[in-house]
Design a protein around this nucleic acid. Sequence first.
RNA 1: GGCCACGUGGGAGAAUGGUUAUCCAGAGGAUUGCAAAUCCUUCCAUCCCAGUUCGAUUCUGGGCGUGGCCUCCA
Length: 448
Amino acid sequence: MNNLKLTNSFTRKKVIFKPINSKKISLYACGPTVYENPHVGNARTLIVFDILFRILKVLYDSKVTYVRNITDIDDKIIEASHKNKKKIYEITNKVTKIFHENCKSLNCLLPTVEPKATDHIKEMIQMTSSLIDKGYAYKNKDHVYFSVNSYKDYGKLSNKNLKELKAGTRIEISDLKKNPMDFVLWKPSKDEDPGWNSPWGRGRPGWHLECSVMSEKYLGKTFDIHGGGLDLIFPHHENEIAQSCCNNNTKNLANYWVHNGFVTINNEKMSKSFGNIVSISDAVKKYSGQVVRLALISAHYRQPLDWNDELLKNQKNVLDKWYNLYTEENGNITEVDEILLDDLNTPGFISKIHQLYSEASKGDEKKILKFNQACKLIGLFSLSKSGWQSFKKDSINVSESYIIKKIEERAKAKSEGNFSLADKIRKELLLKGVLIEDQKNKTIWKFK
RNA sequence: GGCCACGUGGGAGAAUGGUUAUCCAGAGGAUUGCAAAUCCUUCCAUCCCAGUUCGAUUCUGGGCGUGGCCUCCA
């Protein structure tokens, strides 16, 4: 039997995945904070864990619970609401809607549960109270802080040591904190900002708490896999672990921690100050969700991935080719290739698909099906062939009947030996974004 | 300063203690009225130094270089 191997950030080693209960696999991935349009970096995380979810479903007969949260209360959201002069919920609803559209266009499966932070305030207050009672947290002037000194394993995931962190120069020192590294569990809200009543006055939860609370509620005190972007290791995941393990008196929050690398844009870090953030919506509009998906898995998930036009163009050409052998037939996907099981080696698997294509192109139907299944396993071929061909239709101002008319005119010119006219028609269509290909007995067209 | 990752052909990107993926680009060919698409063939690589080894791109140590985290960030 093939084993799934994952690189566990906790040990920085690639290990064989052994679930707590093979009848109920638990996967938690940090979802978005809904304050602005999700970008292609978010998309990478989405797709990586979507593929992991798909693999687990095949391996464990669909007995997988995949939780992906939505953080809809956070300082960044409050900031955005002030800036745009909009109510909090207007922003969170709008961004959540866009996020869902993005997920769909990228062909990500729906998670089993998609809990929202604001639906779990009560549980967060409970956890905060409990941490105070147990001596891991303390109140100071309407704030509640987690005391990092109370947890001896603090820093273990991110491989940081408290003494060195203290020596760091740029930590904001709040007088309210006992230790500069202590982080907030609850903080007061201004009257105009969103807040909930709590034993410490009207306020709101600190970041991190929502994931601790929701993962426990839907997956239990210790679960199988917790994932997210590389930058969440510290402080987000470190703090989640501290809260949860102290509160539950457990050794681990999750047995496997999986983190994906960053997306750079033309070799630059994606950031607001560079103004080079590419939103999923824009990327999908420009290249289609399929192409974006394939591009984002063209490097191994732990490696950095550079987003540039050449990459996207390349992936589009690959899909154009692969769609030659597209079939509606799905069959039953019952196994996962060893390459993919080896720490989700998607580039290696893509290479395998190229080989499968090559074999299948000779016409053997079984091989064609196998090729299709491989594509579908990693979430490709979500569109039918015609859907794929016309994904750019909206941005091209030519009607299908016009194209067909022109092709007929050209066929006539060709039969009369008037090749210069035929070439002229072809050139005109190309300028309009329509590519013509003469096949044996017919002429086909596609959007460029 | 601390921690971490990475350095493979012109570009992208896997893998591997010995037999050198894959894609794009380049070259040649088949096909085509010409193209396009497709197919076939083909050129090109493992940052530097030392060690382990019969043998290292792969393991170990050192160096150089790049990037990330330590502050909100996927």
